[in-house]
């Protein structure tokens, strides 16, 4: 029961942040880029709900706009790396042999690198921008999907219904996407929700390090980084973006936990 409630809380948080991001231009009380240099680092007040940052901009408005970047990057990267990872995992598991060995060595190499370090290196080469951050995180992200899907494919590809599909005369492509994929999707969906949380943290980390958004753009990681310089004088500048990251990541993890329980065959029938 308790777990179930957490799932609902997770959904509520994600939906609230999602709506906030979507409606940011209409519901944010101030322009997130507006400079009010006379009102630097003002703590939360009735006019500015979460206070003002070093440039005097409204933190609440910036958080709403920041949610756009965090959620877009999170969902888009997971969608891209999921699509690539699932396809490669299907091919690797289904064909086996040399193809499988080759692809799995590539996966091993990518997994052997410390993830964030590789992302930093990639962004350093490509140049800092949100787009390049997404490319770097996709390059890192697909391997976990490939690993997962490949294992699942190996476990079901000798089932009789897959053999029956092979002896129906249909193409390998169709067997992979019509017969195998739907039967291995449940753990992949769970993995995807956890990945969204991971990607949001990674994007924040990269932005914190100055490798993400261009300076001044509201992103949770970048806001955290700006607050770092005034941490002792005005903790609210870093506390609120930090809280936002924590809440969203926690929410996606709750959803992931819930989905995992749901797809677990042992609890399926209750």
């Amino acid at each position: 029961m308790f777990k179930n409630k957490l799932v609902y809380i997770g959904w509520v948080i994600v939906i609230l942040f999602g709506l906030g991001a979507l409606l940011a231009p209409w519901i944010s009380p101030y322009d997130p880029y507006e400079l009010r240099l006379s009102e630097q680092l003002i703590p939360p007040s009735s006019k500015h709900l979460l206070g003002q940052d070093a440039n005097g901009s409204d933190i609440f408005s910036r958080l709403l706009y920041g949610a756009r970047i965090s959620l877009t990057v999170g969902l888009l990267v997971v969608f891209l790396s999921g699509t690539i990872g699932i396809t490669i995992g299907l091919i690797s598991g289904y064909y086996g042999g040399v193809i499988d060995t080759g692809l799995m060595r590539v996966v091993d190499i990518l997994l052997a690198f410390p993830g964030l370090l590789l992302a930093i290196a990639l962004v350093a080469v490509l140049g800092p921008s949100v787009f390049n951050v997404m490319i770097a995180l996709t390059v890192l992200g697909w391997v976990s999907f490939t690993r997962l899907v490949r294992g699942q494919v190996l476990s079901i590809k000798e089932r009789d219904y897959i053999l029956a599909a092979k002896t129906s005369g249909q193409s390998d492509f169709r067997i992979m996407f019509v017969h195998i994929l739907p039967n291995v999707l449940s753990p992949v969906i769970v993995q995807a929700t956890f990945s969204v949380a991971g990607v949001i943290i990674a994007e924040s980390s990269l932005s914190f390090l100055g490798l993400g958004v261009s300076p001044g753009t509201p992103s949770w990681g970048a806001m955290l980084s700006e607050g770092k310089q005034v941490l002792l004088d005005a903790p609210h500048v870093s506390i609120f973006p930090g809280l936002a990251i924590m809440l969203v990541v926690l929410a996606f993890n709750f959803i992931g936990d819930g989905l995992r329980d749901r797809f677990d065959p042992k609890t399926e029938k209750s």
């Binding site: 219904y161 029956a164 599909a165 039967n183």
Partner: peptide, 20 residues
Amino acid sequence: LFYENVQMIFQDPYSSLNPR
């Protein structure tokens, strides 16, 4: 074409049909 001439049924009817 061969599979239009030769078809097979399997032992375990619980695993020979795609559950989805």
